[in-house]
Design a protein around this nucleic acid. Structure first.
Lengths: 265, 265
DNA sequence: GAATGCTGTTCCATGGTGTTGAACAGCGTT
DNA sequence: AACGCTGTTCAACACCATGGAACAGCATTC
C-alpha cells in the first residue's frame, strides 16, 4: 500500500456533488493530514487534471476524471454493447432507460437515456444504490440464491427511503419470488417518490447476474402488468444484452420483442 | 510533485476504451517502471476500487472512477443545471442532444441524451474533441477573439477527420463569421461521416464561453436553416443555461422558444 | 514428464523522497 | 496599523517507496 497514493485518493473522495468546491482548510478539517501534505498532493493532482483550482482559493475535481471514465472496464464491455438497444427502448417507451452494473453489493448506474419526465436534475449515471429498493436491484437479487441475498442484505442493510420501501427480509423474499415468476422486477416508488420502474436482469457468459436495465417513469401506469408491451420489450432488451455478453440460456428463450422496432436484430 | 501519485495516475491513463483490460506485463512495457513498482501501485489502487482485477491475470479501471465523476465540478455546476432543459430539447427535436465543457483547448462531452439514430455505440460523454470540427466547438470559437482562436488552433492544430473538415485558418474564420451572424454553429459531417449538428454557446457570469450544447442527427435536414424551429429552440436552451450560470446579456435578448414546451420556464 | 518460458507475486535492503512543523505572504477585517 | 485568516513555501529528518532479485504458478514445449 503506497501511502501517498492512498492519501491522494482520500483527498479526491472528500469532494461530493453537494460540495464540489472546497478550500484547503475545508479539506484539512475533513482529513487527518497536515495542510502542507494536502497542498503537495493537490499540486500533483492538478498537474494531471484530476483536480482544478477555482477562484484562486478553492479546489474541485477536474475533468480528467470524466475522460478516464470512458476507459473503465464495465463501460467498454457492458455499456457500449448495451447502449444501442437501450436507446431504441427509450424511444419506443418514451421513458427514461437505465443500465446498471452489479458490483457484488450495490448497483452502479453506468448509462442512461433520460426523458424529460425525470424528476431529478442530476443524471443517475455514477450513482450507487442499494439493491432492495430498485427494480434493477431486485431483478438481480431474484437471480441470486436466497443465501447470497441474505448475505448481501446483512452487509448493506435495508434502509428505508420512502413509505413503500421494503425494510425486512421476509417481505423482500416474497417480492423476489413474484419477480422471478414475472421475469422482471417492479419498483413502486420504493427508492424515490414519484418514480416507478420495471427492471430486468443481465447475465454474463457464466449465467451470473452482472447488472440490469430498467424503464423508469413518473406515472404508475408503467408498472401495470400487461397494460402495454413495455415489460416484454424490456425483457427482450435485457435478454439481447445478456446474449451479447456471451450468455447462452439453458432453455432456448421464446421471448420476442413486441415492438416491430427490434425485428432487425 | 509526489512521484508515486504521478506514477499511479500514469498507470490509470494507460487504459483505453480499445484496451480496457491489460496484464501487468502489458502495462510495464508501456511505462518506464519496473513490474514490482507497478504491482505495488496496482494493489493500492485496487484497495480503493480505482483498479479491478479481471480473470486473475489482468487489470482494468474500476468503477470508483465512475462514482467520482458525479462530484466533478463541471458536472455539479454546469451539467446539473442544464440537464432538464436538454432533456426537453431532445424530446422536442427527437434527436441526440449534447452538452460540452470548454477546457481552454478542447471540448469535453459531459452530458448526452442520445437518440437511437446515433451511429456510434459508445456514448460521447467523456470524449475530448477538437473545436474546429464540431458545431459545439465552433460556437465557442465564434465567441472568442480572433487572437484566441488563432492561439488555440496553433496549439491543437486542425486535423482532418472527414472530407468536409475545415483544415485551414482562413476557412475557419470565414465560417466563424457566419456562425456569429446566425447565432449558432453548424457541423456538416466535419467530425464524423453521417453526423450533422447545430451548436450554440453557453456563457458564464463573466460573459466568457464555458461550453456549448448541440443537436445532432444523422439527417442533413437538421442543418437546413429555417426548415424547422430546432435552431431557435437550441438557442433558447443555450441562452437559458447561460442565464442559470449567471450570465446577463449586454443587450436583453429577444429570443423566445418556438416550441410551446418551454413556456413554463 | 521434466524442462522451459512465460506469467504475477513477494521479499528486503537502500537511498531517495514524502512528510511535517514552522515560517512566509497575501487579504480582508477589526 | 495590527490582527486573524487564508494559501503557499521551505528544509531537514525519518520513513517508506523503490526495484532488483528470487519465488511461484501455469502453459507450452521438447
Amino acid at each position: 500500500m503506497i501511502q501517498s497514493v492512498l492519501k491522494a485518493i482520500d483527498i479526491m473522495t472528500v469532494f461530493s456533488t453537494e460540495e464540489p468546491c472546497l478550500t484547503l482548510a475545508q479539506i484539512s478539517e475533513r482529513l487527518p493530514m497536515p495542510k502542507s501534505t494536502i497542498h503537495h498532493l493537490l499540486a500533483t493532482l492538478i498537474s494531471r487534471g484530476f483536480i482544478e483550482k477555482v477562484n484562486d482559493d478553492s479546489y474541485a475535481l477536474g475533468t480528467a476524471i470524466v475522460s478516464l471514465s470512458q476507459a473503465v472496464r464495465v463501460n467498454a464491455e457492458l455499456r457500449d454493447r448495451a447502449a444501442p438497444l437501450l436507446r431504441e427502448l427509450a424511444e419506443i417507451a418514451k421513458e427514461s432507460v437505465y443500465l446498471t452494473y452489479f458490483d457484488g453489493s450495490y448497483i452502479l448506474y453506468i448509462y442512461a437515456v433520460e426523458s424529460s419526465k425525470r424528476l431529478m436534475a442530476r443524471t443517475a449515471v455514477g450513482e450507487q444504490v442499494h439493491l432492495h429498493c430498485t427494480a434493477n436491484g431486485k431483478s438481480i437479487l431474484a437471480a441470486l440464491s436466497p443465501d447470497r441475498v441474505d448475505d448481501i442484505i446483512r452487509r448493506t442493510g435495508m434502509p428505508r427511503f420512502t413509505h413503500t420501501t421494503l425494510t425486512n427480509s421476509e417481505d423482500l423474499h416474497i417480492e423476489l419470488a413474484s419477480s422471478r415468476q414475472r421475469g422482471y422486477a417492479v419498483d413502486r416508488e420504493e427508492h424515490e417518490l414519484g418514480t416507478f420502474c420495471l427492471g430486468a436482469v443481465i447475465r454474463n457468459a457464466a449465467g451470473e447476474p452482472i447488472g440490469g436495465c430498467s424503464l423508469s417513469g413518473a406515472d404508475e401506469s408503467i408498472v401495470h402488468d400487461g397494460s402495454n408491451g413495455l415489460a416484454a420489450d424490456l425483457l427482450y432488451v435485457a435478454q439481447e444484452i445478456s446474449r451479447r455478453m456471451g450468455y447462452v440460456p439453458a432453455t432456448p428463450s421464446l421471448l420476442a420483442p413486441k415492438s416491430a422496432h427490434f425485428v432487425h436484430h
